[in-house]
């Protein structure tokens, strides 16, 4: 079996409906997006507590989300990360666990590909890496994994009821050949509006 066949052999849910399942039950949570999620989430949500971390440093979105969670302990923070991003900074799993941010949920949209650069396989896909296993080993109190949309749609509304921080892997299909990151306007203006929405401006 080729490595690519290994990647495709797993059941995967479609990317946009997976995000839509979360958008449908989102209330006043801060949502931090990056990469593929930053492209699709703005089509599903225009909430003032959406923070699109774009332009970004690949791998650092969970840390930005951790900072927000620690700064705003009365709010839930959901970070929509990519698998390539997660792979680039696995140490974040340890850092977040050590910081004990109980109000943080880290969702990894795992498609096994670097879509932003044209769809090459990640080394994690080749190695068939178990991201959820990393989170368990790092001591995260809640680790969840979904590969069907039906299961995910049932679990998503109750996500923040589990003890935090929570690590969620969604096995998703690639977005497709039209992958292109959006232009969301000047970051400094978006940060100012976001801080205003938080009441800290």
């Amino acid at each position: 079996m080729s490595h690519d066949m290994h990647r495709k052999a797993r059941a995967r849910m479609p990317f946009v409906p997976a995000l839509a399942g979360l958008a449908a039950c989102r209330d006043q949570e801060i949502v931090v997006t990056t990469m593929g999620a930053a492209r699709e989430w703005p089509k599903l949500s225009s909430h003032p507590l959406d923070f699109h971390y774009l332009p970004s440093t690949m791998g650092q979105a969970p840390l930005v989300a951790l900072g927000l969670a620690l700064a705003q302990p009365g709010r839930e923070v959901i970070c929509l990360n990519g698998d390539g991003c997660m792979l680039m900074n696995l140490g974040a799993l340890v850092t977040i666990r050590a910081a004990a941010a109980v109000n943080l949920t880290l969702v990894v949209m795992d498609n096994g590909l670097y879509e932003v650069t044209g769809g090459q396989q990640t080394v994690a896909a080749v190695a068939q890496t178990d991201f959820a296993g990393f989170a368990r080993a790092a001591g995260w109190p809640s680790v969840l994994e979904f590969d069907t949309l039906d299961d995910w749609q049932v679990a998503a509304p109750k996500l923040t009821e589990a003890p935090g921080p929570r690590f969620v892997v969604l096995h998703v299909e690639p977005i497709g050949p039209a992958y292109q990151l959006p232009s969301l306007g000047p970051m400094s203006e978006r940060i100012a509006k976001f801080r205003q929405a938080l009441g800290v401006a």
Binding site: Q60, L68, L70, A92
Partner: peptide, 26 residues
């Protein structure tokens, strides 16, 4: 002061960014 430990230095800038955006002074 709250001491926050990170696993690698790049994380420090991003974590501090989230704290500052959230209204803290890291």
């Amino acid at each position: 002061l709250k001491l926050l430990r990170v696993a690698r230095e790049g994380e420090a800038w991003a974590l501090a960014a989230g704290l500052w955006i959230g209204g803290q002074q890291p």
